[in-house]
Design a protein around this nucleic acid. Structure first.
Lengths: 263, 263
DNA sequence: AAACTATTGATTGGTATCCAATCTTGTGGT
DNA sequence: ACCACAAGATTGGATACCAATCAATAGTTT
């Protein structure tokens, strides 16, 4: 249904927020065209979409690269995210019904169980997803899209840094946030959101040089496999690219292997 | 410096927010390609940019049209705008220095003078611009871009409705907002922002059928003239497309002349 | 006459090929 | 070691072409 450039843009987006394509990585038209078996023009359209989303930057006559935000921009993204989530919190504290609170609590509970079961990967995804669910309850699609875009960009940021903190703390934050909001303690709730994000940022140490771990061809190998199967080609990337979680309750650490650097 | 598709996207954006191109208007590739004297591919890239910005919608195998948001979406856009401006207000009330407040007051003063001088067009632009200046003082480029996009979309909405209110009231709102914020009366300030936008929305009567006033060729005639001159071609559209004001303190009324309708 | 169907025409999405401008790189001379 | 210049590669764009699909018309049937 979607145009091919949209599918490819979604696939690339997924690759970026999964840290398979890291900031600074060159996204050559010819190379991508070969990988996706499509003409260069379709690739260019996909890259325009990525650039509009803030995940890539296109330099005239030099090509597209995975975006490499400055520390300043990183701060701004987190500030914007905080602002949005605080605003949504304010709205929800007024308008959210019992069913909504229940859904949030249930989500936290699922994450707690994942932690208890030692399934860190799932816990990670759920922790990220919480914020998305939170905003979804505002029932404002425009706001959802803005938030999703900001979240994607924070996820991109996590490629640039070495996170180092435990996320049990953050899970507690989610639980406490619900409590505060339901009790109408809006001011404290907003304070919590602020410190929550600040905790995340503070856990980050920005490495100025980031080393690509994978070439585009390696990073997108899974897509090539999918393409072999045939059916899953168009569906899978679209869905995961849009709905699946992203966020910042990660404890990953990236091994650094110098290879091809930009700047 | 920018790619041609970007320049064209900016030109089209300006035409849309100036209401020369109204919601539902068909944006045919071939027609635009002739108008701008470029290949269809460049046009398609420009249309992708517009669609990503929420100003156009592309339907597969049917083409691109100027976006025609539903009443629901209109509400969501205004809610999002309110949320963003409230958040910025909260930040500014803490962090803004005397110079900032002075800039805001000066801006209101300029608008007041324009009103006094009977220069309604200028007053309109300044009234719209106030919100942009307000957000700019947050010194957060990411937030600025989000806000600018939302403002563009509200401006698009104004094509869909018949506004009917005087904007002296809104000018007072701006002045009062500054007073409240500087005095730290944050809660009242946020309430004011909310009612400010609600006033705007309430002044609107959504007409379900919108009639294109101009064909793309007519709407973009000024561009064609510029192109004849040669020099002003690349500069003018770029600059105005990005910085010049948009907002909602308008008192325009659109005459309706049935012509080519969609749906 | 009204409703359904088929053909035609126009438009879009996409490919392949070509070209100019620009960037990068590597080589050679000093 | 350093600078200049030429060669190669890459991007931005034009053009021509094709298949798929939508819209609208004309024709057929009831």
């Amino acid at each position: 249904m979607s145009s091919r450039s949209q599918v490819i843009a979604d696939t690339l987006t997924r690759a970026v927020i999964d840290h398979r394509l890291v900031p600074g990585c060159k996204l050559g038209e010819r190379e991508l065209a070969e990988i996706f078996d499509v003409s260069r023009i379709v690739i260019r359209q996909a890259l325009i979409r990525l650039a509009d989303d803030g995940l890539a930057q296109i330099e005239r006559n030099r090509g597209a690269f995975v975006a490499k935000p400055s520390m300043q921009e990183a701060m701004e993204i987190y500030d914007a995210l905080t602002l949005v989530e605080q605003g949504v919190a304010a709205q929800l504290s007024d308008r959210l019904g019992p069913a909504g609170w229940a859904e949030l609590r249930q989500h936290v509970e699922r994450q707690r169980q994942a932690v208890a079961a030692g399934n860190d990967a799932l816990a990670d995804v759920l922790g990220q997803e919480f914020h998305t669910v939170f905003v979804r309850l505002s029932r404002n699609k425009v706001m959802q899209e803005i938030h999703a875009q900001l979240v994607r960009r924070t996820t991109l940021l996590r490629s640039l840094i070495t996170a180092d903190f435990d996320y049990c703390n953050l899970l507690d934050d989610h639980s406490r946030l619900i409590d505060l909001l339901e009790k109408g303690r809006l001011k404290q709730a907003m304070e919590l959101i602020d410190t929550h994000h600040r905790t995340v940022v503070r856990g980050y140490i920005m490495d100025r040089q980031v080393f690509p771990e994978l070439t585009p061809r390696e990073a997108l190998a899974s897509f090539l496999e999918d393409k072999g199967n045939g059916a899953a080609k168009a569906d899978a990337p679209k869905k995961t690219g849009k709905t699946s979680g992203d966020g910042h309750a990660s404890a990953h650490r990236h091994t650094q292997s110098p290879k091809q650097i930009r700047q």
